[in-house]
């Protein structure tokens, strides 16, 4: 029991550090693409410390107060139901508590809490951003769901660990190669999930300042930034497990998640922003068809 608790702390610490570092790295890379020097890699950590070091704060009410708590609980929870390393007892987390559907739905836990918290803030932009985010989410959920269904058909299981187990052996037994259509659909969905350009209308800073967290500051914001590390890490690990053969060692995990994240970053720096209705139609178009094709292919 205590050992497990220790493992969990270790595991969460790992993903937090790696997630935030990854953000730092990406910022650096983006800066270099722009021809800038960019912030130091550890900048996300400094930001978090700075935010928590604010001496005052404001709160609009209980739900506003709890919003970031929900958010980070959602991030940590999502992470804790995903096995991080294949075959590692230390990093298996609580993956025995549920399968891929649990993870898919737990993702919503934090988003819902955040949406509620920012809603109590009373700022119209928060609500507008949430409306955009939810609409976009409902759309990219379709190709992702189809892709997961295709995997369930392919591997005959919903269990993330079993899906990882089935991809062991050679690089060619990764889902990426055995079920490329599902992988493509999921990756496109991931672009939406990560809210990078072209799907960043939710937090469009010039239009609806920063979106849902408009009213958040200080420790609240610090918590949200911490979560960004955890949650990003969790999502990347999930994708790694489902499509890229999982990982058996921490370096392997780091390399793979980095590569996966880079897809999102590349697309992000290359494309301008979609309007909400455009992204809805986009996700329900070609990506959905790819997802359907992936399901049908394994169905037949």
């Amino acid at each position: 029991m205590i050992v497990k608790a220790l493992y969990i702390v270790l595991s969460v610490a790992l993903v937090t550090v790696w997630g935030l570092t990854l953000t730092g790295i990406v910022r650096k890379i983006v800066a270099r693409v722009h021809g800038r020097i960019g912030p130091p890699v550890w900048q996300p950590f400094v930001d978090i410390i700075k935010n928590n070091a604010k001496r005052t704060g404001i709160s609009h009410g209980v739900m506003f107060y709890l919003g970031p708590v929900f958010r980070i609980a959602g991030g940590m929870g999502t992470f804790l139901f995903i096995p991080v390393l294949f075959g590692s007892d230390m990093f298996s987390n609580f993956s025995f508590a549920g399968d891929v559907f649990l993870v898919m739905y737990f993702i919503f836990f934090g988003q819902l809490g955040m949406a509620l918290g920012s809603g109590e803030g009373g700022h119209p932009y928060s609500a507008i951003a949430v409306a955009r985010g939810l609409a976009q989410m409902s759309a990219f959920e379709v190709p992702f769901a189809l892709s997961v269904i295709s995997l369930a058909v392919q591997y005959d299981t919903f269990s993330v660990s079993s899906i990882v187990a089935a991809q062991q052996g050679s690089i060619f037994s990764w889902t990426m190669f055995t079920n490329p259509l599902a992988t493509i659909a999921a990756i496109i969905a991931m672009l939406g999930m990560n809210m990078h350009s072209p799907f960043d209308v939710v937090i469009a800073p010039q239009e609806i300042p920063i979106g849902p967290p408009t009213e958040y500051q200080g420790s609240f914001l610090g918590m949200l930034h911490t979560n960004r590390g955890i949650f990003n890490g969790a999502k990347l690990i999930l994708f790694m497990n489902l499509y890229f053969g999982g990982a058996t060692t921490i370096p392997e995990m780091i390399v793979k998640t980095f590569c996966i994240y880079m897809i999102s970053v590349f697309v992000g720096v290359s494309f301008p922003r979609f309007r909400t209705d455009q992204s809805i139609r986009f996700f329900l178009g070609i990506p959905t068809l790819i997802g359907v094709a992936a399901v049908i292919l394994y169905w037949l």
Partner: peptide
């Protein structure tokens, strides 16, 4: 698990509750 991961950040926030001013509905940006 959910309750656990909920409690940890909550405790942290509660430790900072004294510095936080409760504001009204029009105190928005």
């Amino acid at each position: 698990v959910t309750m656990g991961v909920f409690m940890v950040p909550l405790v942290w926030l509660l430790s900072r509750v004294r510095s936080i001013q409760k504001v009204k509905q029009f105190n928005i940006v």
